[in-house]
Design a protein around this nucleic acid. Structure first.
Lengths: 140, 140
DNA sequence: GTATCTGCAAAACATTTGCAATTCT
DNA sequence: AGAATTGCAAATGTTTTGCAGATAC
């Protein structure tokens, strides 16, 4: 796990001034690979930082995404979720329990027919369905 | 292009009572393959149906999606878009002009590693970037 | 001491809900 | 008449904006 100093250095490398709030938010994303929404980040961090505001979280996540430090995940119609894992992967949302799972796929396997001259900057494979746990639960 | 009668029959087949509003909304989606949001559907159809309310459009699209007649497209963080094309395809959003393009890909090319026992009900490949037209425009 | 960052309060939107009026059979 | 549909108005919930005070270099 990364130290505060290491996290701070990552922010500086990305041209983001490492404030206390920003370090804590990025640390939370790194430690909790749960594609959190603003609410989850807020309720977890505000315990330790009572003055933390949601506006700061919104501002921070927007800046992180602009700088390429994190990705927003749009699989949930209602709210934006965030992911600090930059390695290519897809997202599965279980429509029964609501949980979001990462899965691997091979980017080069996909032939994007019709986008030959386009510049592709972000790809996300979004899958919905029922996860194995819920599938077994519902069988009973 | 389908007649009102044919559209009506499609709705009946899907167990949807073919009201005037529903027929017009589905007809709009079929005729305009532009992944419209609620606002676009409303502003276009309310010319011909002055009493049409957005609530009805929301209700209708929700019902259409439940019954498998259309798909919601979530590539735009801000709002839901709708698509009457059910054939497997991906969506590309140009971050310069905002337009959404369909593209083809081969579903069977993708190996979903880690979802082996899951039930997959909906897959969408979402790509963002710059479309060719905007790419050329920006070069000047 | 000037830029930036933070956070409160209010605004802005998309979507949902409650409910009464309308329509259809 | 009875059931479903429509649509207005209000509520909800997420994200954005304006701005004043705090913080950092």
């Amino acid at each position: 796990m990364l130290s505060i100093q290491e996290i701070s250095n990552i922010l500086i490398e990305q041209n983001i001034k490492p404030s206390f709030q920003r370090i804590k938010i990025y640390e939370f994303l790194l430690k909790n690979n749960i594609h959190p929404n603003i609410e989850i980040i807020y309720s977890n961090l505000s315990k330790g930082i009572p003055t933390l505001s949601k506006t700061t979280i919104y501002n921070t996540l927007k800046k992180f995404e602009e700088k390429g430090l994190i990705l927003s995940v749009n699989i949930d119609e209602k709210e934006i979720r965030y992911d600090a894992i930059l390695k290519t992967h897809g997202h599965f949302k279980c429509e029964s329990c609501g949980e979001i799972f990462d899965f691997d796929y091979n980017y080069n396997d996909i032939k994007f027919k019709g986008l030959e001259n386009f510049i592709l900057t972000k790809t996300d494979v979004m899958v919905k369905g029922i996860c194995n746990k819920c599938k077994l639960k519902n069988k009973k």
